[in-house]
């Protein structure tokens, strides 16, 4: 019963778009701040699929095997005991600390916006983008790569689109982030804010034909009429009603809950240790500068 209501809410959250929704979420966050004691500390089973999407196996029937998936999950959990992989989404700003075998004794911290998150299981990966010295830089990180020592979420938020590859053709200010950025505090249990920012694209030529992608996070594009006519011709607006396609591309909710119920205990344990660590961190005295 609880599961169904929450999933409905998730769907609602997806469907409603634009500024209105965000403002309501902001209100919600302000409310939750005042009533800190009532916040549920654990994620419910239905929320796990948003928080830990890589635990959901590949829906392609040809590649599925229950024992392989189980072993994969166990490996993921044992890696997660050594690295805190937090909840993050496309559009969140992350800082990843890693080591390179070609520069020993050095750690490397990269700050950037997550423009893509894909893959499942041990193959899960994400791309961070930033502009450093007027040069766009993108780094693809594998989540379970043992050279990653720390993944930190500096700003937890979502954008209007599921992938932000259009930032490559946008003005550089939209993907420039300070590498010394301080992590922003996100109250626990509060809904994830959606950043309604609309990006301004550079004039053509582009890497892709963005006018055909039905993007919500870009400003009005200044193009001749024929581009939009062609985009309309190629659009497939009926695909969102294609239930069979949806079915083939997703894993049924029952199966998802089964998977998450199996690993729920370990995940909760990991969350608890993370909280303890966080509390520890707050006690560290700030270093005086100058």
């Amino acid at each position: 019963m609880i599961v169904s209501t929450i999933s409905r809410r998730c769907i609602l959250r997806k469907q409603t778009s634009g500024i209105l929704r965000v403002s309501s979420i902001r209100q919600l966050t302000s409310n939750t701040k005042s009533t800190k004691e009532n916040i549920p500390t654990k994620f419910s089973l239905a929320e796990y699929r948003h928080v830990y999407p890589e635990f959901i196996p590949d829906p392609n029937v040809e590649f599925r095997n229950p024992i392989r998936e189980k072993l994969e999950r166990l490996d993921m959990l044992s890696r997660r005991a050594h690295i805190d992989i937090p909840e993050f989404y496309v559009g969140s700003i992350l800082a990843v600390t890693s080591m390179d075998k070609h520069s020993p004794n050095k750690t490397n911290k990269f700050v950037g916006i997550c423009i893509k998150r894909e893959g499942c299981g041990l193959r899960a990966k994400f791309i961070l983008r930033n502009v450093i010295d007027h040069q766009g830089v993108e780094v693809l990180y594998e989540m379970y790569d043992p050279v990653l020592s720390k993944i930190e979420v500096l700003r937890l938020e979502k954008r209007l689109d599921d992938e932000l590859f259009y930032l490559r053709d946008a003005l550089p200010e939209y993907s420039t982030f300070d590498s010394n950025m301080e992590p922003e505090i996100h109250p626990e249990g509060a809904p994830i804010p959606i950043n309604p920012i609309k990006v301004k694209l550079k004039p053509r030529p582009w890497l892709e034909r963005w006018e055909r992608k039905d993007l919500k996070g870009i400003e009005q594009i200044d193009l001749p009429e024929r581009f939009f006519i062609r985009a309309k011709e190629l659009a497939t607006p009926w695909e969102k009603y294609d239930m069979m396609k949806q079915y083939m591309k997703t894993i049924p909710e029952e199966e998802q809950t089964e998977i998450f119920a199996e690993i729920q205990q370990q995940l909760q344990q990991l969350e608890l240790t993370r909280k303890k660590l966080k509390r520890k961190r707050t006690f560290i005295k700030p270093v005086k500068l100058a």
Binding site: H82, M99, D100, S103, N105, P146, L148
Partner: peptide, 12 residues
Amino acid sequence: VHKFDDLTLTFE
């Protein structure tokens, strides 16, 4: 092989 239970890899 790096075991998944092992600590994070470091290069010295």
